[in-house]
Computed example of a mutant assay.
Amino acid sequence: MDQHQILINELIKLLEGGGAHATLKDALANVPADKRGVKPNGLPYSIWQLTEHIRITQWDMLEFSKDGSHESPNWPDDYWPDESSPADDAAWEKTIAQIDTDRNEFIALLKSGDIYANIPHGTGQSILREALQIADHTAYHTAEIVLLRRLLGIWKS
């Protein structure tokens, strides 16, 4: 296996999460519906808001990476939902499914070309940079979700 493929494989592991910490899938598994919108101890975000923020941000980076006509949402307001809770279980499941779908689409993009080349419509970004940004952003907020679950008493030991 060449060094390029080794790097791609490691980036995929990074995007999928885990290794040194919980995956996003683990962090979102079995969150009771009545806890998704709770902001414990005066914290500014609920599990739902963090999850939806991960979805919006990852989607934006994916679309930016593949489409020169993509217009990003307004920062920061359009990257965060106003509602503390999802409308219903279907909205919760749809967000989680979209995170998975978009991550898989980004991984396909990662495998498809030169990860070092500048994205033509960007300002110096590359697919490598976007992969690292998605992974870093998701890991950061996954840790927050785990912390919220601990504070709510709904995290496994």
Rank of each mutant, 00 (worst) to 15 (best):
D60K: 03
Q58Y: 08
R55H: 07
H21L: 04
L28A: 00
D60C: 13
R55W: 07
N74Y: 08
Y79H: 04
D88P: 11
A91S: 12
L43D: 02
T95S: 14
S65G: 12
W48V: 03
E93S: 04
D82I: 07
D88I: 13
D102V: 14
L43E: 03
I107T: 05
V31D: 07
E105N: 12
L109M: 08
E52Q: 12
D67K: 08
P86D: 06
A33I: 10
F106V: 02
A91D: 10
L62N: 09
L110P: 00
H70G: 04
S69T: 14
Q98Y: 08
K39L: 04
V31T: 04
P81E: 07
P86A: 03
T23W: 06
L110D: 01
I54Q: 08
T57K: 05
H53G: 01
T101K: 15
A27I: 05
D77A: 05
R36V: 01
A20S: 15
D26K: 10
L110A: 01
I107D: 13
E52N: 10
T101F: 09
I96P: 01
L28C: 01
V38H: 12
D34N: 07
S112T: 07
T57G: 05
Q98N: 14
M61F: 13
P86E: 05
S46Y: 11
I99L: 12
V38I: 06
A27E: 02
M61G: 11
A97Q: 14
D34V: 00
A22W: 08
E63P: 03
P73R: 08
P32D: 15
Q58T: 02
N41I: 15
L50E: 02
P32V: 11
E105S: 13
K25C: 09
S112D: 11
E71R: 06
Q58L: 06
L28R: 00
A108E: 13
E83L: 12
P32A: 09
L24F: 09
N74M: 14
D100I: 07
E93I: 06
D26C: 01
S85V: 02
I47D: 02
I99R: 00
L43K: 02
I47N: 10
A90K: 08
E93N: 15
H70K: 11
N104A: 09
D100R: 06
Y79M: 07
T23L: 06
I99K: 07
E83W: 04
I54M: 01
S112R: 02
A27L: 09
A91Y: 05
W92L: 07
K111C: 00
T101C: 08
M61L: 14
L24V: 15
W80I: 15
T23H: 04
A90D: 14
E71Q: 05
A91G: 10
G68Y: 10
D102S: 14
K111A: 03
T57A: 05
A91K: 00
D26R: 09
D60A: 12
P40M: 08
P76F: 13
E63V: 12
A29S: 14
A108W: 14
H70F: 12
F64S: 09
L109A: 02
P76H: 15
D67W: 03
R103L: 12
W75C: 12
Q58M: 11
V31M: 00
A20T: 12
P73I: 14
D26N: 13
L50G: 01
L110N: 02
W92S: 07
S85Y: 02
D78M: 11
K35W: 06
N41D: 15
N30I: 03
K25A: 06
W59T: 03
E105F: 12
P73K: 10
G37L: 03
W48S: 05
L50Q: 04
Y79S: 08
